[in-house]
Amino acid sequence: MEVFVQQLINGVTLGSIYGLIAIGYTMVFGILGMVNFAHGDVFMVSAFIALIAFLILTSWIGAGLIALALVVVLIVAMAMTALLNWAIERVAYRPLRGSFRLAPLISAIGMSIFLMNFVQVAQGPRNKSIPPLFSEVIVLFTVDGYDVTVSYKQIAIWLTTGVLLLAFWYLVSKTALGRAQRACEQDQKMAALVGINVDRTISITFVIAAALAAVAGTMYLVHYGVVSFADGFTPGVKAFTAAVLGGIGSLPGAVIGGLAIGLIETLWSAYFSSDYKDVAAFSILIVVMIFLPQGLLGRPEVEKV
C-alpha cells in the first residue's frame, strides 16, 4: 500500500511531463494530420536551453533565489523553444504541405536526427547533470519504517502543470485563436475561405506545442537533474503513446494518456522489473492502437466506402 501510494505520487509527476509533450503531438496531428516526429527532440533541446539558462542565472545570482531563477529559466526556455519550433515548421514542413503524404514524415524524421546530432556536436555527448534542487521532502505518513514522501520539486511540477494546462485550455477553447485552430482541423480550405490565416494558425500551433514541450523539458531537468542529447527519443515515443492512448486529436485525452503512461511506467518498475518498463510502454502503444485505435477520448473513425 505505502509503496503503491509512493509510486502513485512519482507516476503523476512523470505523467505530467509526458502529458505536456503529448499535447504537442496531439495538436499538430489534429491540425496537419502528421506525426511530428521531431517533437521529442524539440523537448530535449528545450531541456538543454533550460540548462544553459539555469547555468547563466546561477552564476550571476546566489542560490537563495533559485525559485525566482527557475521561473525565468522556464520563460526563457518556452520562448526560445517556441522560436525553434516555429522555424522548424517554416523550413521543414510548410514547403511540404499538400504534397506527398510521406514527405513531411520523412522530413520530420530528418529534423529529429538533425536536432539530436546538433545538440551532440554543440554540447558534447556527455550527460549534463546539475546539482539537485528542492530535494527537501514532506513525509506524508510512515508505515513500518517506509516513508511515503512528496518532494517540493514534485509539488512545484504539479502546480506548474496544472496552472499552465488551465491557461492553455482557456486559450484553445475560449479564444478566437482556438476557434481558428479547430476550424483548420476540420477543413483548411474552408477555413481559409472564411478569412482565417491558415499559415499563421498552424505556426501558432507549433509555437504553443513547443512552449508546452519546454515546460516539460524544464521540469525534466529539475526532476532528474540530468539531460543528454539522446533524451528526446524515448520520452517522445512515450508521449506519443500517451497521445494515442488518450485519443489523438483530443487535448484532455493527451493529459489523461500522459498520466496513465506515467503511472503504468512507475508502477511497472516498482512491481515488476525496471528493465522492461519501456517494453511495457511500447506494448501498451501496440495494444491500444490495435484494439482501441480511437483512444480513450477520441472520435471513432468510420471507414468510408
Binding site: V91, A92, P95, L96, S99, F100, A103, P104, I106, S107, I109, G110, M111, S112, I113, F114, L115, M116, N117, F118, Q120, V121
Partner: peptide, 21 residues
Amino acid sequence: TQYRMLLFGLAMVVIMIWKPR
C-alpha cells in the same frame, strides 16, 4: 565523423523539400 549524422538529417529534410517524391 561526428558531423555525419548531423548532415544526414539535414540532407533528408533538404531532399524531401527538393524532391518530395
